[in-house]
Amino acid sequence: MNKHTPTIEPAVPPKRRRQGTKAAQRAEMTEQILDAAEFLFSRHGLYGVTLKDVAKMVGSHHTLINYYFADKKALFDAVFTRRAVVTSERRMRMLEEYEAASKGRPTVEGALRAFLDTDLDLYIEGGEGWKNYAALGAQVANTPLWGAELMDRHFDPVVLKLIELLKAAMPGCPEEDIFWGYHFTTGALMLTLARTGRIDKLSGGLCRSDDFVAVKERMATFMAAGFTEICRSRSES
């Protein structure tokens, strides 16, 4: 599947040859269900997908999905959690490594690169599955009713670690400005991960919403300047 996938639903990846044990077979089927559900949820959201849709994409009866997952919300949570754990742990590790390397003198851009670039690398290098997850994450982050709870559960520790480093990098900056800066930064990240195609149209093709490499080259630098400016202007007022 290339990055210009049409709206027609493609088939899930070819089924691998079943392993010998029941545990291996169950694990294999679980991954196939999660992959199919991730693709569908990333395009149609929680309420736009049924278990029958997932079953059809996997090539089985919907009762099989119920055997693995109690209901659609349980399936959705499993889809989200599968990759949330990976990106959260990677970013926490990079933030901690950066903190140690900076020896108590972190910079705003250095902290942001540990947080943003580490995440963007997953979407650059991880294949279409990670791009699907990116779009799904953007949906969840913008769904107050139940999405905020998922984001809190999986990402609060790594976000607060970033905030800690930003405070160290800007010791005179009002704390609320650091949190607002994070708010603006994560908003830009979520819009990027959504890959809406809007920047493609506005720029006449000069920019592409799926060009995560271009985003990685610019975002941390751009956001660092924003943090620095709001803290400077507020301290002078």
Results as ranks from 00 to 15, higher is better:
223 M>A: 13
92 M>Y: 04
36 A>I: 05
155 F>A: 00
125 E>A: 09
136 L>C: 10
213 V>M: 08
35 D>I: 13
93 R>I: 11
181 G>H: 00
234 R>C: 10
101 A>H: 06
213 V>F: 07
194 A>V: 04
127 G>H: 00
11 A>E: 12
10 P>T: 02
68 Y>I: 11
60 S>M: 14
182 Y>M: 06
185 T>C: 06
164 E>D: 14
144 P>Y: 10
88 S>A: 13
63 T>Y: 07
69 F>S: 04
206 L>C: 06
147 G>N: 05
99 E>D: 12
35 D>E: 13
190 M>A: 12
26 R>Q: 13
190 M>D: 05
90 R>C: 06
201 K>N: 08
81 T>A: 12
42 S>L: 04
158 V>Q: 08
95 L>W: 03
26 R>E: 15
82 R>L: 07
97 E>A: 13
31 E>L: 11
172 G>T: 10
213 V>T: 15
101 A>Y: 02
105 R>A: 15
167 K>W: 07
70 A>K: 14
27 A>R: 08
191 L>G: 06
73 K>T: 12
136 L>F: 06
89 E>V: 05
36 A>L: 07
1 M>F: 07
119 D>Q: 06
224 A>M: 02
40 L>S: 03
153 R>T: 11
237 S>N: 06
85 V>S: 05
223 M>N: 05
84 A>L: 01
108 V>S: 03
172 G>Y: 07
91 R>V: 15
129 G>L: 07
123 Y>H: 12
91 R>A: 05
196 T>I: 04
24 A>C: 08
134 A>D: 02
215 V>E: 13
184 F>M: 10
173 C>V: 09
22 K>F: 10
218 R>D: 09
28 E>Q: 15
164 E>R: 14
85 V>R: 10
28 E>I: 00
138 A>L: 05
68 Y>M: 05
43 R>N: 10
96 E>P: 03
125 E>R: 06
98 Y>C: 00
194 A>D: 12
